[in-house]
Design a protein around this nucleic acid. Structure first.
Lengths: 153, 153
DNA sequence: GTTGAAAAAACAGAGGA
DNA sequence: TCCTCTGTTTTTTCAAC
């Protein structure tokens, strides 16, 4: 993993459908060389997939909420959430509430309905998302830049 | 937006680097027809981008946390977060705490450092993410399936 | 939406620093 | 080991229908 790999990751994170040849043009390499690096990054599990981002409002999904949940039936609750299409993200967290869920629905009615279906697993509170100033903002750069060695300070 | 469009969205969400021709093979259409549908979905803003998913642990980012924040300096705080590489997601939420941040760092020390830099904007509490059973699980399907009309119940 | 030809990109192998 | 070069295959693009 050198500077070039980080640059590739950054560019693919920005646009995963960019042709390998153009990637090569940007970083100053031929297409097969870039492709080989990408192949290795995939093999090593650094790149885990390529996904299209889809506008939720355009799909009629106008309600996003976060549910903080306290349960003792962890395995069953995880399975329940996995099979609920409303739940897009599930995190185990520290604190009294041991799970946080991100819920995406068309209306607030659906959110309430989901919340009620959760009742049997424990207790919770819900935070409605009002706006998202930004999401998935990843800054991909080498841990220690070669242009700023520690001993140069 | 018909059934075919939803199928295209679903497949591109799964793998955004799939060739248009293979997409066509799956849904029973020629490559130019699929491409034209994808172009329209992009134009309409239904597809907002194509992104490579990158393993955070492989980049040495081993700490993820959620910070619930209360501030009165909203504009300044948004700008501060936007420019902080640790902050990957920022949500305005209902409740006493008006923002929730997702923070990704290499170590917990960096998380603490970030938290202290936030001090001037308001008060907060932090939840450490322990595990993520799943993330970005989007179920893309038409609002009303043609095979299950309301009047058939 | 389909067909078909031209352009571009991806792929696979040989060879060089 | 990592890259370039080159020929072949696949995909994309862009007409006309």
């Amino acid at each position: 993993m050198d500077q070039v790999d980080y640059k590739i990751l950054s560019l693919l994170h920005e646009n995963s459908r960019i042709p390998m040849a153009e990637l090569g043009r940007i970083i100053g390499m031929t297409q097969p060389a870039v492709k080989e690096r990408v192949r290795k990054l995939e093999e090593q599990g650094v790149i885990t997939g390529y996904h299209a981002a889809i506008s939720l409002p355009k799909l009629g999904k106008n309600t996003t909420a976060f549910v903080m949940f306290r349960t003792k039936k962890c395995a069953a609750f995880i399975e329940f959430c996995r099979q609920s299409p409303e739940v897009t993200d599930m995190y185990r967290i520290s604190g009294e509430y041991n799970y946080m869920l991100k819920i995406v629905t068309e209306t607030t009615e659906e959110l309430v309905a989901f919340s009620e279906r959760c009742g049997e697993f424990g207790y919770s509170y819900t935070l409605i998302m009002l706006t998202a100033p930004f999401e998935h903002k990843m800054t991909i750069e080498p841990p220690i830049a070669e242009t700023a060695e520690p001993w140069s300070n």
